[in-house]
Design a protein around this nucleic acid. Structure first.
Lengths: 350, 350
DNA sequence: CTGAAAGCGCTTACAG
DNA sequence: CTGAAAGCGCTTACAG
């Protein structure tokens, strides 16, 4: 591997100028006389010179890249977000490093290392479970929180999860449902908690009962949705409609429910959260709350860029809105069953 | 932002030694006398010193990171692969940069820039549409192709797509199908071509007719699967079974077919490719060819590491095997319909 | 075992 | 408009 790297020296020699002039030609061409500039560019062509970013960055005191830190890279949820970030960053010639916080033994220590000098010029955090203390690195670069994160006051891009819950409950209540349940994400997850709280508020606001027995714990995964289906089926006084904290859980629920010959929206109305790609292709197509993930990535990157360039980020912080995508998994509640059946209590809700 | 960076100088002063000794204590501790070492470590603690990677890397002539270059980062297909790469790389203290080839105006030029000195120590290529000429950069770092790529001879990790097609056709033929169709990926995609060729070979090998009219062109997306459903429905002599080049297309097909009251496996048998997460949760759960994506990422990273460290990669190149995941979307073909109907010719196949 | 010194490849005040 | 020179923070032969 004899990579005989072409350096700025080679170009300078070839063009008969100093390295300073070569450098200037490449970074601030206007300041160089035209004939000189042309000679330099010719020499660059001839030698095939490519700037060595390592050296440039060391000199400039920046790395030219930022890190996106996610709790689980394998989660396809992040792919669109990363694509959004990459779009904004690459337009500015910044690199995008990705890392998984939950991979090693000590996530906090990993974060601290990524904040060390020379690792990156900034960082976007998607993992709300990291401890705020890990951010306490002297001279650390700017950090953007792209998750709800209650404990620390970081510049952030937030998704309006409360609004999502409100839209879901409003839609179901408008259809005539009063027994509206909720399938949650993991208890410790802040997103999950906000959606749960949003469901409670939306129910209460309408004089509906946000009953504890109508809350089914999940962890965002399809499997946990399938499990929720089994618990829902066994519940004595089960809701006629369910708002899921993720589409994946709704998918798992629908698949499992179907095995018990329960169909949406005939037997139960279902609203998801995220609008993952498959949602439109299910049977029935899933009504859901859409999160604009590409936008989240773009916004997070733009905010970080502003911070890196010395801005205060104020103009870039934002609450990303969500909206209801109406499909076919919701309908008015089924008519009350005759007395003596498991769902008899539904009569009271009509 | 007054980041007063702590440098190796500060530590040296604090410990009363030279910077060389500090450096050695940190990289090759054994070569330093114990008392000295301890003094240095104390000074590191006290000052909160963190090595500046930029400087270290410039000196060492490496960047400490590699690039994964994908045609479309938003495709969730890549998330597991990236997670697999990240796992291997971070264990070795390498960073993972990601970039999207199809974002800018000139993909080849982007590739060339990423191959420039100082951008990364190596690169994994997932985009088979890039032109080989773009790799022709003097002194470029090692590149691993993690896609089938016929034109260039790069160290590579390949997925056994032909085997996947064979498994799918074998399974359907064993069930009694003889009219087995194929829904392809995009024509120009090498993966798609290999799967199509694999289907043809597998059919021919069994004396079955790989009829052109049984090939439906798609582009891997759910939408294209739905379109294939419409074309399949309209086909005069339609196949009783379909092998899809992607699960996503199978999902789109099933959703659309259901609207025409066509169900798998009652009316048509369906085999996908990939084993995406939702496959297990569909109704019916989808029989498919599984690609171990995490493994692909791990292998690609391991191969690249070997190349970067001066190996020839030979021991790390590999063909990743696929397997058939049997679920409920396949069954023996429906009995031939009575004469006079569209599917009457099926009788000949019984 | 330790230190003085060179140097990785670039950029940028400072002179002229 | 251009060049000589310093220096970004580190590592590593080379002496001792």
């Amino acid at each position: 591997m004899d990579r005989k790297q072409v350096t700025i020296q080679d170009v300078a020699r070839e063009a008969g100028v100093s390295t300073a002039t070569v450098s200037r030609t490449l970074s601030k061409p206007t300041v160089v006389a035209k004939p000189t500039r042309q000679a330099v560019l010719r020499a660059v062509q001839k030698t095939g010179y490519q700037v060595n970013h390592l050296a440039r960055n060391l000199r400039r005191g920046r790395t030219g890249s930022v890190i996106a830190l996610a709790p689980n890279l394998a989660n396809p949820f992040f792919s669109q977000i990363l694509a959004g970030m990459s779009e904004v960053l690459s337009a500015r010639n910044y690199g995008l490093l990705i890392a998984d916080t939950q991979m090693g033994p000590d996530p906090d220590e990993r974060l601290r290392r990524y904040l060390a000098a020379g690792a990156a010029d900034g960082l976007v955090l998607f993992d709300g479970s990291l401890s705020p203390a890990a951010l306490d690195v002297p001279g650390r670069p700017p950090v953007v929180a792209a998750c709800e994160w209650l404990k620390v006051d970081l510049p952030s891009i937030r998704v309006d999860n409360a609004m999502g819950a409100e839209l879901a409950v409003a839609h179901l209540a408008d259809l005539g449902h009063s027994r509206i349940g909720h399938v949650t994400g993991p208890r410790r997850n802040v997103l999950a908690r906000t959606r749960l709280a949003g469901w409670r508020d939306a129910m209460t606001r309408r004089g509906l009962d946000p009953r504890e027995g109508w809350v089914f714990e999940g962890d965002f995964s399809m499997d946990s949705g399938a499990m929720a289906a089994r618990r829902w089926l066994a519940a004595p006084d089960r809701p006629t409609a369910l708002f899921f904290a993720s589409d994946e859980m709704a998918v798992g629920f629908l698949g499992e429910a179907r095995r018990a010959d329960i169909r949406a929206p005939r037997d139960v109305s279902v609203v998801g959260f995220d609008n993952i790609e498959v949602a439109a292709h299910l049977d029935p197509p899933l009504t859901t709350i859409r999160q604009p993930r590409t936008l989240i990535g773009q916004r997070a990157a733009a905010l970080l860029m502003d911070l890196i360039e010395g801005g205060d980020g104020a103009a870039f912080e934002s609450m990303v809105e969500v909206d209801l995508i109406l499909r076919d998994s919701t309908a008015p509640p089924p008519p009350p069953a005759p007395a003596g059946q498991a769902s008899s209590k539904a009569a009271g809700a009509a």
